[in-house]
Amino acid sequence: MIVSVPRLLIISLAAIFSAYHLVLAVVSIDVPHQKAPYIAAMVLYGLATLLSLLLSRTQRMPTWVAAFNVAVAVVVPLLVTSQFDQAEAKGTYAAWHTAAIGTLMVITSTRRRHTFAWIGTAALVVQTVAWAGPGGLVAYGVIGSVGWVAVSQALSLSLAKAGRDTRQYALAEREAVEWRAAQEAHVSERQFRLGQTSRMSLPMLRQIVAVGGELTDSQRLECLYLEGAIRDEIRGRKLLNDRVREQIMIARRNGTIVTLLDEGGIDDLSDADLERVLNRLADAIRDTKTGKLIARTVPEGSDIAVTVVGLSSFDEGHSSALGSQGIDDEEDRVDLWLEIPRTGVTVSA
Rank of each mutant, 00 (worst) to 15 (best):
S198N: 14
S198Y: 14
S198D: 15
S198H: 15
R199L: 11
M200Q: 11
L202W: 05
L202G: 09
P203I: 03
M204D: 04
L205N: 02
Q207P: 04
I208F: 03
V209T: 13
V211F: 07
E214T: 10
T216Y: 09
Q219W: 06
Q219G: 06
Q219I: 09
R220H: 07
C223P: 02
L226M: 02
L226S: 09
E227S: 12
E227R: 12
A229E: 08
I230Q: 07
R231E: 08
G236R: 07
G236P: 05
G236K: 05
R237G: 12
R237F: 04
R237L: 12
R237S: 10
K238F: 03
K238P: 02
K238S: 11
L239F: 03
L239W: 08
L240D: 05
N241E: 11
N241V: 01
D242I: 06
D242V: 08
V244Y: 04
R245T: 04
E246P: 00
E246M: 00
E246D: 12
Q247I: 06
Q247F: 01
I248G: 07
I248V: 15
M249E: 14
M249L: 14
M249R: 15
A251T: 03
A251P: 02
R252E: 05
R253N: 01
R253D: 00
N254S: 11
N254C: 09
N254I: 04
G255H: 13
G255E: 04
T256R: 07
T256W: 10
E263Q: 15
E263F: 11
G264P: 00
G264S: 08
D267W: 09
D267E: 15
D267C: 04
D268L: 13
L269P: 01
D271K: 08
D271S: 15
D273K: 01
E275Y: 00
V277N: 12
L278F: 05
L281V: 11
L281K: 04
D283N: 12
I285D: 05
I285P: 00
D287Q: 10
T288Y: 03
K289G: 07
T290E: 03
T290N: 11
K292C: 02
R296K: 13
T297I: 08
P299L: 07
P299A: 07
E300I: 08
E300M: 13
G301R: 08
D303H: 14
D303F: 11
I304S: 09
I304E: 12
V306H: 00
V306S: 06
V309L: 09
G310P: 01
S313I: 05
S313A: 12
H318L: 15
S320H: 15
G323Y: 10
Q325T: 14
G326R: 00
G326W: 07
D328L: 11
E331G: 01
E331Y: 07
D332Y: 13
R333D: 14
L336P: 06
L338D: 09
E339L: 03
E339D: 11
I340S: 03
I340H: 00
P341K: 13
P341T: 12
P341R: 14
R342K: 14
R342N: 05
R342Q: 03
T343C: 10
T343S: 15
T343R: 14
